[in-house]
Design a protein around this nucleic acid. Structure first.
Lengths: 190, 190
DNA sequence: GTCTATAGCTCGATAGAC
DNA sequence: GTCTATCGAGCTATAGAC
């Protein structure tokens, strides 16, 4: 289906180039579809991007839920999420858009990023709260602060990987986050 | 001086809009200078941006060095850096450019981000190594991983603040990072 | 549904007078 | 050093035939 080819091209280009840099021309070249098809299936570049971001948000949310979905101990679920393989040079498909004016200034587009990040922070916060309740983490921890930090380690790691063109930076960041968190868990065990 | 007004306008717009969204027209409007002046003082938009980024890199580097410059214990220097006041909605003046294709694909422009981030990671790594040597942190810590994580907490916090339009997210992230790090330090003291 | 042609605009940059 | 006029290209989008 032509519509799907256009959507797939947009998803790819949003990752590679971002929203502002992605022109309808680029989408046509990437998908093989003509201009008539593009504007037949989507009213505007923004509407195309919104549809693509819906897909991307769904895929990333599902991936995150899978990492947290296993029935094991909450800290191990967090570990699984943090240690997922990531291509630092490509960046997060949603996080990389968080600094584009055209995305932030448009409530429709920003809503996709907003929802995804709040979902992941929620998953992290629930697991942290469960670990604390089970006695695997000290009672004094601030769940919201730690959940935000853990997601920030991923997103910030991507920023550093891209800025320094060092694919391993994101892995160092998440490994550092896990080292600190598991250090806190070990403290309780004693 | 007109040149300085143009430079100041560019620095402001790079922060507000980023490089790709900042047009020569915008710089003219913001600075009050005419097109003739702009292209008299700077050969191109890219050269203007490079000069502006030099300034910004210098200012941010100095600010970071100041946070680490006090003569106190290394962990307290890290705390000072992490707990600096930050406007989450505005983002990091350099980090916010790390996802722009036009910046990443140009070695000249990316070099400014690269140098700044490596400098801050170096400051963090030195302080962490000193703390470990002094017995304030366990011997087993990986200095590079932790230094990367701490900077990622700032950069990732900015991403989350902007994506969710929640100015406090960056503060939660850095507070979470400090909570984990100081937890590790407390462990050694026992 | 898809094509080609074209609109109206802004982009980054240059020319040449003053 | 600064001005105004203008360039060629690419942008997002629409028109209208097939």
């Amino acid at each position: 289906m032509t519509r799907q080819a256009i959507l797939d091209a947009a998803k790819k280009l949003l990752w590679l180039q971002g929203f502002e840099s992605m022109s309808p021309r680029d989408v046509m070249d990437e998908s093989g579809a003509g201009q008539g098809s593009l504007y037949h299936h989507f009213r505007s570049k923004k509407e195309l991007a919104a549809a693509a971001l819906d897909d991307i948000e769904g895929e990333l949310t599902e991936k995150a839920r899978n990492a947290f979905g296993s029935g094991r101990a909450p800290l191990l679920r967090i570990r699984t999420y943090l240690m997922q393989a990531r291509d630092g040079l490509k960046g997060c498909r949603l996080g990389r858009l968080a600094n584009e004016r055209a995305v932030l200034d448009d409530g429709e587009l920003r809503a996709r990023l907003d929802r995804y990040f709040r979902t992941v922070i929620g998953l992290l916060a629930d697991a942290l709260a469960e670990a604390r309740r089970d006695g695997a983490l000290p009672k004094r921890i601030n769940v919201d602060d730690l959940a935000t930090l853990l997601l920030a380690s991923v997103q910030g790691g991507f920023v550093l990987s891209r800025a320094t063109q060092d694919a391993a930076a994101v892995t160092r960041a998440t490994r550092g986050a896990w080292a600190l968190l598991s250090g806190l868990a070990a403290e309780v065990k004693k």
